[in-house]
């Protein structure tokens, strides 16, 4: 019982239960063949695509900030690689560096604006989102005269960034996702940097007074989110031999929803990498799993909405459980969140 309640208090608990709930719903009401679903690649590929971005976004949200410019950075990364290597025929390595470089650049802009101004990061990154949409469309039309650019990547780049593994349908990006998850799990939960991030999300002023380099950490986190998004775009361009200006716009919502289903508090200070990992899996199964059901596709958006609401509601009650259990009383002050989160 003690073990059970300890498990339920972890930030990942709700997302794991959501995952089980979603699978049960699809099996019971949708007639899903579980073996077929688990063997299929579509939802894992999709989870990896949004998951690589969701993990750094999760960290950023734990620190109390948000980045929606990722929506423009995915096509920006794809188009950088495709224009540099596909259109101008420079070696692939320059295309890769260009895609990573544009991520670092926009991340720096976001981060520096976030620490130098008092404008909320939602607004700052909304501005860079829209601005980058313009840069990508106008830049592509200016340089190539087209809004869609083909790209033929060399074998080694395909092997590392954009192949289908074992001759099946699973993309190599899944491996990258797992690597990202392990590295970020280590950083967030095993190093002092992780503690700093939780502390920043709890109370920025206190964190600064405690000697945490809040500004530097914020900028680094913004660089990580923007760069991971441009990295995903680049991988997709290499895998699908083409890039188009507006790919990935809808991913903003999907990524943030995955992070929230994964148990990260929108206001910061609470969350975990395993939670975001499972949250992304859950969201991917909700979105892609509907195709494996006998449910009429016309209902799919309604089901997705209801499932997400249920998952987030579960998160809410588990978080209350976690906070009250640790404190031993009903009230919980804002900065106690830090103490709880550190226990993970």
């Amino acid at each position: 019982m003690e073990m059970m309640s300890a498990l339920l208090r972890r930030p990942a608990a709700a997302s794991i239960l959501s995952l089980v709930g979603v699978l049960a719903f699809y099996v019971i009401f949708g007639g899903v063949d579980l073996g077929k679903l688990l063997n299929a690649a579509s939802w894992v590929n999709y989870a990896a695509r949004i998951g690589i971005v969701a993990i750094p976004v999760g960290l950023l949200m734990v620190s109390g900030e948000i980045d929606i410019s990722i929506g423009a950075m995915i096509p920006a990364g794809a188009m950088s690689a495709a224009i540099i290597t596909g259109y101008y025929e420079f070696p692939m390595i320059f295309g890769i560096l260009g895609a990573i470089g544009i991520g670092v650049m926009v991340g720096l802009i976001n981060g520096i604006l976030a620490v130098r101004t008092t404008v909320p990061t939602l607004i700052i990154t909304l501005a860079t989102l829209v601005a980058m949409q313009g840069v990508v469309l106008a830049g592509s039309k200016l340089l190539t005269g087209s809004a869609s650019v083909p790209l033929t990547a060399p074998g080694w780049a395909k092997t590392i960034f954009g192949q289908l593994m074992f001759g099946g349908s699973h993309q190599v990006i899944i491996v990258w996702w797992v690597i990202f998850a392990v590295v970020f799990w280590f950083v967030l939960h095993q190093t002092r940097y992780g503690n700093w991030i939780f502390a920043m999300g709890g109370d920025k002023e206190s964190a600064r007074n405690a000697g945490i380099p809040v500004n530097r950490m914020t900028i680094v986190l913004f660089v990580l989110t923007a760069t991971s998004a441009s990295f995903v775009g680049m991988c997709h361009a290499i895998l699908f031999n083409s890039a188009q200006v507006s790919g990935g716009m809808n991913d903003i919502f999907n990524i943030i929803v995955s992070v929230v289903v994964g148990g990260v508090l929108l206001t910061g200070g609470f969350g975990s990498v395993p939670g975001v990992f499972v949250g992304t899996l859950t969201f991917a199964i909700v979105i892609k799993g509907i195709d494996f059901t006998t449910i009429d596709r016309n209902w799919s958006n309604l089901i997705i909405g209801v499932m997400l609401l249920t998952a987030v509601a579960m998160n809410e009650s588990f978080r209350k459980l976690a906070l009250t259990a640790v404190l031993g009383k009903k009230e919980n002050a804002g900065d106690s969140v830090v103490a709880v989160a550190k226990n993970n």
């Binding site: 077929k36 063997n39 299929a40 690649a41 579509s42 590929n45 999709y46 349908s169 699908f240 892609k288 195709d291 494996f292």
Partner: peptide, 11 residues
């Protein structure tokens, strides 16, 4: 392209 591969996976 993903949906086409998914159709293969779904038998």
């Amino acid at each position: 392209a993903e949906l086409i591969r998914q159709a293969i996976d779904q038998g």
